[in-house]
Each structure stands twice: as structure tokens, then as C-alpha cells.
């Protein structure tokens, strides 16, 4: 078994109203960043987990996302990096 560090992004599902993202967009516009088209505020998790290989680590984190870390009704997740620690 090897210790892997897995990085996960969880974001509000596209098309759903994202008032936090809109508030940040408005604030950036106020600061003069008028080129900003859209912002989405989500969560970033870094999970350290034992697994036989990177593929198994990713599969395990996928299951964690579907069972707890992301709400299947309102959120999407993306597993970004799986690296041995």
C-alpha cells in the first residue's frame, strides 16, 4: 500500500443559481476587473489515502465523492491529481 494525495474540486452544478459566485463576480467588477465573465465558488479537498496504486486511490475517492463529499443533486466533482506522497 502507498499513501496517495488526491486533490478534488467540488463545484455547484452548471445552470444552478450560484449566488456566491455572482457576489464575487460583482465584487471583481467593482474592483475594475471588468473582463471577468463568471465565477463559481466551490470546495477544494486534499485527501490522503492508502491504496495499492493510483487507479485504486482515484476509484476510492470517486466513491467518497458520490457518497458524502458532493451532493449529487446540486454539485459536480472533478478529481484533479493523484500523487504518491
Amino acid at each position: 500500500m502507498t499513501l496517495f494525495r488526491v486533490s478534488v474540486h467540488i463545484v455547484p452544478r452548471k445552470g444552478l443559481l450560484d449566488p456566491q459566485g455572482k457576489a464575487v463576480t460583482d465584487a471583481l467588477h467593482t474592483l475594475g476587473f471588468s473582463a471577468v465573465a463568471d465565477v463559481h465558488v466551490g470546495r477544494h479537498l486534499i485527501i490522503e489515502t492508502q491504496a495499492t496504486d493510483a487507479k485504486a486511490a482515484e476509484a476510492s475517492v470517486k466513491e467518497m465523492c458520490s457518497r458524502l463529499l458532493a451532493n449529487p443533486v446540486t454539485e459536480d466533482y472533478e478529481i484533479e491529481a493523484v500523487k504518491p506522497v
Partner: peptide, 17 residues
């Protein structure tokens, strides 16, 4: 109750924040 699957849907941040 929604998270536990007793009821469908979810409750998100108020649109007013």
C-alpha cells in the same frame, strides 16, 4: 432529511446570501 434521502432535493445558500 434531504441529505438522508428521506426527501428529494437539497437546500442551498439563500439567493440573497
Amino acid at each position: 432529511a434531504c441529505e438522508a434521502g428521506l426527501l428529494p432535493g437539497a437546500l442551498l445558500r439563500n439567493n440573497s446570501l
